[in-house]
Simulated assay, not measured.
Amino acid sequence: MTSTRTPQLQGSPAGDAKLRTPRRAGFSQRIGRWDVKVSPYLYISPFFLLFIVTGLFPLLYTGFVSVHEWGLIKGQGDYVGLQNFTTVLQQQIFWKAVRNTLSIFLLSSIPQIAMALVIAALLDANLRAKTFWRMGVLVPYVVAPVAVALIFGQMFADQSGVINQILRDLGIPTVRWHSQVLASHIAIATMVNFRWTGYNTLILLAAMQAIPRDIYEAALIDGANRVRQFFSVTIPMLRPAIIFVIITSTIGGLQIFDEPRMFDQFGRGGSDQQYLTLTNYIYQLGWAQKNFGRAAAVAWLLFLIIVAIGIVNYLITRRISSEQQGGKKRKKVRA
Score class of each variant (00 low, 15 high):
residue 3 S to A: 07
residue 4 T to V: 12
residue 5 R to S: 07
residue 9 L to Q: 13
residue 17 A to L: 03
residue 19 L to A: 11
residue 20 R to Y: 09
residue 22 P to A: 07
residue 24 R to Y: 09
residue 26 G to S: 05
residue 28 S to E: 08
residue 29 Q to L: 14
residue 32 G to N: 08
residue 42 L to G: 08
residue 45 S to W: 05
residue 49 L to V: 13
residue 51 F to Y: 05
residue 51 F to R: 07
residue 51 F to M: 10
residue 54 T to R: 09
residue 56 L to S: 07
residue 57 F to A: 08
residue 58 P to C: 02
residue 60 L to F: 07
residue 60 L to M: 10
residue 61 Y to V: 06
residue 61 Y to F: 12
residue 62 T to L: 05
residue 63 G to W: 02
residue 64 F to R: 04
residue 64 F to G: 08
residue 69 E to C: 07
residue 69 E to I: 11
residue 73 I to W: 07
residue 75 G to R: 01
residue 75 G to A: 06
residue 76 Q to L: 14
residue 78 D to E: 14
residue 80 V to R: 01
residue 81 G to T: 00
residue 83 Q to H: 08
residue 87 T to C: 08
residue 90 Q to G: 13
residue 90 Q to R: 08
residue 91 Q to M: 06
residue 93 I to M: 05
residue 100 N to L: 01
residue 103 S to Q: 08
residue 104 I to E: 02
residue 105 F to R: 03
residue 107 L to A: 08
residue 119 I to C: 05
residue 121 A to N: 13
residue 121 A to M: 11
residue 126 N to F: 15
residue 127 L to H: 11
residue 128 R to S: 15
residue 129 A to I: 07
residue 135 M to G: 11
residue 136 G to E: 06
residue 140 P to A: 11
residue 144 A to F: 12
residue 146 V to K: 12
residue 147 A to V: 14
residue 148 V to H: 01
residue 152 F to N: 00
residue 155 M to N: 03
residue 158 D to A: 00
residue 161 G to R: 02
residue 162 V to N: 10
residue 165 Q to L: 10
residue 165 Q to G: 15
residue 167 L to C: 06
residue 167 L to M: 13
residue 169 D to S: 11
residue 169 D to M: 13
residue 170 L to D: 05
residue 172 I to S: 13
residue 174 T to V: 15
residue 178 H to E: 10
residue 178 H to G: 06
residue 183 A to G: 04
residue 183 A to C: 01
residue 184 S to M: 10
residue 188 I to A: 03
residue 188 I to G: 00
residue 190 T to Q: 00
residue 200 N to R: 02
residue 201 T to M: 01
residue 204 L to I: 09
residue 205 L to A: 00
residue 206 A to T: 15
residue 207 A to G: 03
residue 210 A to C: 04
residue 210 A to S: 12
residue 212 P to M: 10
residue 215 I to L: 10
residue 218 A to S: 03
residue 220 L to M: 09
residue 225 N to Y: 14
residue 227 V to N: 05
residue 229 Q to M: 09
residue 230 F to G: 00
residue 231 F to L: 07
residue 232 S to T: 05
residue 233 V to W: 02
residue 237 M to P: 01
residue 237 M to I: 06
residue 245 V to I: 09
residue 246 I to D: 04
residue 248 T to E: 09
residue 249 S to Y: 00
residue 252 G to V: 10
residue 253 G to P: 02
residue 254 L to N: 03
residue 254 L to Q: 01
residue 255 Q to M: 15
residue 257 F to E: 05
residue 261 R to H: 09
residue 261 R to K: 15
residue 264 D to R: 03
residue 266 F to N: 14
residue 267 G to S: 00
residue 272 D to V: 08
residue 272 D to K: 13
residue 273 Q to T: 13
residue 277 T to V: 12
residue 278 L to G: 00
residue 280 N to P: 06
residue 282 I to V: 08
residue 284 Q to E: 12
residue 284 Q to N: 11
residue 284 Q to L: 15
residue 288 A to G: 13
residue 289 Q to L: 15
residue 291 N to Y: 04
residue 293 G to W: 02
residue 295 A to D: 02
residue 300 W to D: 10
residue 305 I to F: 12
residue 309 I to Y: 07
residue 312 V to W: 05
residue 313 N to E: 06
residue 314 Y to Q: 13
residue 315 L to Q: 14
residue 315 L to W: 13
residue 316 I to K: 06
residue 318 R to M: 13
residue 318 R to Q: 12
residue 320 I to Q: 04
residue 320 I to H: 12
residue 321 S to N: 14
residue 323 E to P: 08
residue 323 E to T: 05
residue 324 Q to T: 04
residue 333 V to T: 06
residue 335 A to N: 11
